Computed example of a mutant assay.
Amino acid sequence: MAAALAACDTGADDTAQGGEEVSSETETHEFTGFVDRQFAGGDIPEARLVDPQGITLWLGETGNKPVLLNLWATWCAPCVVEMPLLDELAGELGDDVRVLTVSEDLEGAEKVVPFFSAHDFRHLPAWMDPENELGFAFGGGAGLPLTVLYDADGKEVWRVIGAYDWASDDARALVGEVLEEEDG
């Protein structure tokens, strides 16, 4: 049986909105996220990210390479399902595209560190948005997961609203759009 995964809007604990424990180890999933290009050309937000060790990253200063920015939370079932797929994609992309996963959990490192430890991600960074700057930058109530691709100049190419199959050929083609720009 396939479970439809759209997006989460809020959350107070580590259970999915239906009350069940959030896990990426469940049945087959039907991803219902969609690509939105209406904000293409917009600048990457000026936001301050922090990792669990307290290191700060200013999002607008991520370098001269494309950025795949994913907003997620530990309480968001579609987000949890996406994370291993994003980890795999980040490994394939290597240094060509910087994949940034940014937790919107209000509890910050208290939730993010155990989540990352339990899932043993090899390619994803554990960034957090302590002031919810990105939530506000994306409209104040952005549903999660939200993934935005920026080109090497920091301009938005597209965003995916909701859960997306990052292991699919379609996902690789979407991300490949910024790599084609750089090559030609």
Rank of each mutant, 00 (worst) to 15 (best):
A3I: 15
A6R: 08
G11A: 04
A12Q: 04
D13K: 00
T15N: 11
T15Y: 05
T28H: 01
V35A: 14
D36L: 10
D36M: 11
Q38L: 15
G42W: 14
E46M: 12
E46I: 15
A47H: 14
Q53T: 14
G54N: 04
G54L: 11
I55D: 15
L59E: 12
E61F: 07
E61Q: 11
K65Q: 13
P66T: 01
V67L: 12
V67C: 08
L71C: 02
W72I: 03
W72C: 02
A73R: 04
T74F: 03
T74V: 08
T74S: 05
W75A: 05
C76T: 00
C76P: 02
A77F: 03
A77C: 00
C79P: 06
V80T: 09
E82L: 08
L89Y: 04
L93H: 05
L93F: 01
G94N: 06
L100F: 14
L100K: 07
V102L: 14
V102G: 04
E104M: 14
E107S: 01
G108R: 13
K111T: 13
K111V: 04
V113A: 12
F115A: 06
F115D: 06
F115H: 05
F116P: 05
S117K: 09
D120F: 03
F121P: 03
R122N: 11
A126W: 03
W127Y: 11
M128Q: 10
E131G: 02
N132C: 03
A137N: 13
A137T: 12
G140Q: 11
A142V: 15
G143T: 14
P145C: 10
D153L: 05
G154V: 09
G154M: 09
K155F: 04
V157E: 15
W158A: 12
W158E: 14
R159Q: 15
I161D: 04
G162L: 06
A163S: 09
A163K: 00
Y164I: 05
A167H: 10
S168I: 15
D169S: 10
V175E: 01
G176R: 04
L179F: 07
E182S: 03
D183E: 15
G184Y: 12
